[in-house]
Amino acid sequence: MSEGSVSAKIADTAVESENRVKVVFIGGLGRSGTTLLERLLGQLPGVVPLGEITHLWERDLVGNEMCACGATFSHCEFWQRIGQRAFGSWEQVDVERLNALKATVDRTRHIPALAAKRLAPAQHQLVTEYAEYFEKIYTAAAKDTRAQVVVDSSKHASLAYCLRWSPKIDLRVLHVVRDSRGVAYSWTKKVARPESPTGDQMTRYSPAKAAMLWNAQNAAFSLLARRGVPVRRVRYERIIQRPRKVIASLGRFCGLDLVESDYNFIGDGWADLGPSHSAAGNPMRFTVGRIPIYPDEAWTEDLPDGTRRMVSTLTRPLLGRYGYLDDEEAPVDEPVLEEVIARD
């Protein structure tokens, strides 16, 4: 190859990189502190947090639920601008087709196939078609707000695996982990969904079900890191203990060039949160103003001993890997992904 050809190829690669939208995907099992992390990252200059886009289609576009700003989706000026810029209008989105694609490619059971180095042509076409719906929203939001980074807190590992195949997305993943016993306890609690017009509650799982989902999601993100996607693991407990230090570190991981004063919204045991347009997620997304940041350790007293032992046994390999067990309790080997994928 001539010197001129090499220079042209480098230039084309640079242009392609500039045209890709930078997406920070927050992954992990729900009730692990993902919404708190999204809210904190969302206060940084150059960041636009979008909430859980995986739920936008059914809950907002079809269900017309409430945006974090307090307006219903159809009356939120931000989301109406995004729909116009991304699709011409939200009416142009074929939700039926999107749901069919989701069932075909975006399920936990499909992760082993999505993790392959190559996809069969037919599957690749379906995956990239599905990812394009998300890519258009990310690009529209970045242009509308002039943000450097778009944050999607959808959490689901299978969606992250789909997004990795999009040539227009510069994907980075924040993998949030929390002690499985605390997560399992949290999934048993009743939590109202204030955005629901029918008074629905958030999904609840039994401790055993939560433990298996915890295994599947966390193992999947460990594998994603070995597939060339930049993945930074962060423990919920660390976020609570040192929020300012953690967010500063993650800001660098996101590629943001910030100064110390950009983190002044985080203090000792508190953070100041501004309004956002998170499309879906934990009710915390509606909170504006100063919030306390403290560890939620109710499970250590309220989770029955038998249930705690059961969850510990089911999740022991990854609990040890993530540092939640004493050295003598921790296993040596990490479980293989196929052994812990829950058949959703």
Rank of each mutant, 00 (worst) to 15 (best):
D327P: 03
M1A: 13
R178W: 06
E129S: 11
V95Y: 07
V21N: 03
R193S: 02
R178I: 03
E52G: 05
N215Y: 09
K117M: 08
A342E: 14
P45R: 07
S261H: 14
Q92Y: 05
S2C: 12
R118Y: 04
R321E: 06
S158R: 05
E301A: 09
A279I: 15
D106T: 03
R290L: 01
P194N: 05
I291A: 03
A192S: 12
V15T: 14
G63K: 07
L171F: 01
R178E: 05
Y263A: 02
V47N: 01
A120M: 09
Q201H: 15
R109P: 00
R181M: 10
D60Q: 15
F78M: 09
N282G: 04
A8F: 09
G46L: 10
V176K: 02
Q43F: 00
L37N: 02
A120K: 06
H110A: 13
N218C: 10
K245H: 08
R118P: 00
R31I: 13
Q201V: 13
T145H: 08
P45M: 03
W79M: 04
R81F: 01
P335K: 00
G228Q: 05
G267P: 00
H110F: 10
F87D: 06
A160R: 03
R172F: 08
Q125L: 13
S276N: 12
I266S: 02
A142T: 03
H75W: 12
D257Q: 12
P230I: 07
F73V: 02
L61M: 08
M202H: 10
S276R: 07
A225L: 00
C76W: 06
A271Q: 07
I53K: 06
G281Y: 09
V332T: 13
D268P: 00
D60P: 00
F87L: 08
E338P: 02
P45H: 06
L224S: 09
E297T: 14
V15S: 12
D302L: 15
V21H: 04
P275W: 00
K155I: 04
D302V: 05
K22L: 10
R81V: 05
K9I: 09
R252H: 08
P243Q: 05
P167H: 12
A219G: 15
L337R: 04
W57D: 03
P167E: 11
D179M: 08
R308K: 14
G281A: 07
L119H: 09
K102A: 09
